[in-house]
Design a protein around this nucleic acid. Sequence first.
DNA 1: CCTGTTCCCGTTGACGCCCATGATGCCCCA
DNA 2: TGGGGCATCATGGGCGTCAACGGGAACAGG
Lengths: 162, 162
Amino acid sequence: MRRRKRPRCVMDRFLSNAVNRIDAKGRVSVPAHFRTVLQKRGYSELYALRCLDQAAMDVGGLDLLDRYEQRIAQEDPFLQTADDMSFFYHGDGTFLKLDQDGRVTLTDFIREHTGITTEVAFVGRGSFFQIWEPARLAAYGAAARARLLHLRQGTKPGERPE
Amino acid sequence: MRRRKRPRCVMDRFLSNAVNRIDAKGRVSVPAHFRTVLQKRGYSELYALRCLDQAAMDVGGLDLLDRYEQRIAQEDPFLQTADDMSFFYHGDGTFLKLDQDGRVTLTDFIREHTGITTEVAFVGRGSFFQIWEPARLAAYGAAARARLLHLRQGTKPGERPE
DNA sequence: CCTGTTCCCGTTGACGCCCATGATGCCCCA
DNA sequence: TGGGGCATCATGGGCGTCAACGGGAACAGG
């Protein structure tokens, strides 16, 4: 039985990863698969939020921000925490505009936080995706795998640590 | 029925940040993105309030005052605190006039409070924006992120605002 | 007269739009 | 089954537009 050309089943989530090069103008192509997801979700504008604890940026549509704003609304608007959150989510992000060829230009702001210089690693994270400096991503991935492995080896029956 | 995508436009909130230079006449360009938001919100005049606890100015339309008056209303009007707040917010504001190139001239009052000399950092805060001296902004941002990170690590698992 | 403000101009550098190219993978058909 | 043709995609670059910026000139007020 021949499988005809059909839409893939997981087109509505950001999955997998890719590394693309930055050209002389500072542009980099967003992976085609991610672009189709963006289109499917109706994202016309990309918003990039700086990760709190990693040298990466979270990238998604503006509804990424809506979720955070709902979170901020839970706080007392006159306390420090609400102010910090607003400061971080509203002020510490940056717009990424897709040009017609599906490329974005990276700002110095992003380069500083991520350490990106010549290449960009795109990592799908489900409802959003991340951009990394490839070497840092590799290091982070290795550390994450090590933690998981350690966790699994430590959870043998009767030998659970901690 | 679930409405998946809100037609919320990018242009109705102050987001992201930018740094612009002050020219010899003391003028500085308000970022183009912020100007479109101002126009969309129908702000004909800008009002700048000095932040109570930061070396920054809150800038927005006159409804910015509403925000602070709500704050004052929470205090007991009999006490000194309410009087202080009223004095501070009502008396320590400045009007900023946009010239036809979208620039404002910074007053000495603003320079004094913010420490701004040659460059101005604009920071979106949703319904208004702030102006900072860039180095001070960086320092404050680092502190704010540290507080948030600490807060996040302190929250129970599954409570991460994601 | 001097200082500060407002309008208007030109410059420049960054960014968006467009087209070209090469690489890769898929499909169809011989 | 293999090869030609087509589609897709990452990448490079030319070029026009616009925002940021600098400065001249026309005011106004003190």
